[in-house]
Simulated scan of single mutants.
Amino acid sequence: MDPTSCYQIILELIETHDYPEARTYAVILHNWLTNRGFYPDGYELERVDHVLAALLKPACAPNAIRTRFQSITCYDCDAGQDISSVKQAIDEGWTEIVGDEDLTATSHLGTCPICRMRQDQELLM
């Protein structure tokens, strides 16, 4: 696949918040670049690397899976009351999830899908 077309697809998928599909294309482009392929035409190299890194990082830290789930709270807002497991949080688009047995009000922290959308808009600018 042409890297420019692939990157444009990634950007479109981020705009529609289809992260699983965007991640699939990010893996394709990352593999292309890792194997000495050229970068997409017309885009800043640092920006492409930043978008790929954001899509390819895991949704949660290993300690999030090992910590017994009680509740999750967003770093930037009070979302999370309707989430009943780490798996549900990941499935609904939460990222940057960490678990900590020492937290008093919640067992997990993360970035909710709404705050992630705001971050994505900043990422695309």
Score class of each variant (00 low, 15 high):
Met1Val: 11
Thr4His: 10
Tyr7Asn: 06
Gln8Glu: 15
Gln8Leu: 13
Ile10Glu: 03
Glu12Cys: 09
Leu13Trp: 00
Leu13His: 01
Leu13Ser: 00
Leu13Ile: 02
Leu13Glu: 02
Glu15Phe: 02
Glu15Thr: 03
Thr16Leu: 08
His17Glu: 15
Asp18Ile: 01
Tyr19Lys: 10
Pro20Arg: 00
Pro20Val: 00
Glu21Trp: 02
Ala22Thr: 01
Thr24Lys: 12
Thr24Glu: 11
Tyr25Thr: 02
Tyr25Ser: 00
Tyr25Ile: 01
Ala26Ile: 09
Val27Arg: 15
Ile28Met: 14
Leu29Gly: 08
Asn31Cys: 02
Leu33Met: 11
Thr34His: 10
Asn35Ile: 08
Asn35Pro: 05
Phe38Leu: 12
Tyr39Asp: 05
Asp41Leu: 14
Gly42His: 07
Leu45Trp: 07
Val48Met: 04
Val51Glu: 00
Leu52Tyr: 04
Leu52Pro: 06
Ala53Ile: 01
Ala54Gly: 00
Ala54Pro: 01
Leu55His: 00
Leu55Gln: 03
Leu55Pro: 01
Leu56Asp: 05
Leu56Ser: 06
Lys57Leu: 09
Lys57His: 07
Pro58Ile: 01
Pro58Lys: 03
Cys60Glu: 06
Cys60Leu: 09
Pro62Ile: 08
Pro62Met: 09
Asn63Tyr: 01
Asn63Ser: 09
Ile65Ala: 13
Ile65Trp: 10
Arg66Lys: 15
Arg66Trp: 10
Phe69Ala: 07
Ser71Phe: 03
Ile72Val: 13
Ile72Tyr: 00
Thr73Leu: 15
Thr73Ala: 14
Thr73Tyr: 10
Thr73Gly: 12
Cys74Arg: 04
Cys74Phe: 05
Tyr75Glu: 03
Tyr75Thr: 03
Asp78Val: 11
Ser85Ile: 08
Val86Arg: 06
Lys87Phe: 08
Lys87Asp: 15
Gln88Pro: 08
Ala89Gln: 08
Ala89Trp: 04
Ile90Arg: 03
Trp94Asp: 00
Thr95Glu: 13
Gly99Cys: 12
Gly99Tyr: 07
Asp100Val: 06
Asp102Glu: 15
Asp102Phe: 14
Asp102Val: 12
Thr104Cys: 04
Ala105Gly: 10
Ser107Gly: 10
His108Val: 12
His108Ser: 12
Gly110Gln: 09
Gly110Pro: 09
Cys112Asp: 09
Ile114Ser: 13
Cys115Lys: 05
Arg116Asn: 05
Met117Arg: 03
Arg118Asp: 09
Glu122His: 10
Leu123His: 00
Leu124His: 01
Met125Thr: 13
